[in-house]
């Protein structure tokens, strides 16, 4: 019995470390997010800016989920801006879990929106929802600040080809 203890302890530490990593990798600064987007040259990058409190955002989420499921040449990221209004990260994580969201969710960890909104796109007023489509290969990008409807994402992707 005694001989098992170090192994159990190691397992315990691994579990704690694992869960800690799992909990922090979704929190990200804008610079980190931009690095990730640039790093994936072979896929079309689709970045949706949303929040749990934004009704039109929730309405258009299934479009991004479908895109994420159907297109292996597209990388979907759902960037939550919830922390702007409420610092409770668990509220977002709970929502993602409840809705069984399959696309990668990132919780943007930034303050003072005026300092970073222009870095996403100069044409963005800051209104939600907003979506950015980037093709790193062609260097083309599309930014839209409105709720999307069926077929809109496919059109935006075609425009950056």
């Amino acid at each position: 019995m005694k001989s098992h203890q170090p192994q159990l302890l190691a397992l315990f530490i691994l579990l704690i470390a694992g869960s800690a990593i799992g909990q922090t990798k979704d929190l990200m600064h804008l610079a980190q997010l931009q690095e990730q987007i640039k790093g994936e040259g072979d896929k079309i990058q689709v970045v949706n800016f949303w929040a749990t409190w934004c009704a039109p955002c929730i309405k258009e989420l299934p479009l991004f989920e479908k895109l994420n499921d159907d297109r292996k040449d597209v990388k979907v990221r759902l960037v939550s801006l919830d922390l702007d209004l409420d610092p409770n990260v668990e509220k977002v994580r709970g929502f993602v879990k409840r809705k069984k969201i399959r696309s990668e969710v990132i919780i943007l960890d930034e303050k003072n929106p005026n300092s970073w909104i222009d870095k996403v796109d100069k044409d963005w007023s800051g209104a939600l929802p907003a979506t950015l489509v980037i093709n790193n290969k062609t260097g083309k990008r599309k930014f839209v600040e409105r709720e999307l409807h069926a077929g809109d994402l496919e059109k935006l992707i075609a425009e950056v080809q």
Binding site: L81, P113, S125, G126
Partner: peptide, 9 residues
């Protein structure tokens, strides 16, 4: 001139 996160009109 400034910007903030808000709801689309």
């Amino acid at each position: 001139k400034t910007k903030a996160i808000g709801c689309t009109i």
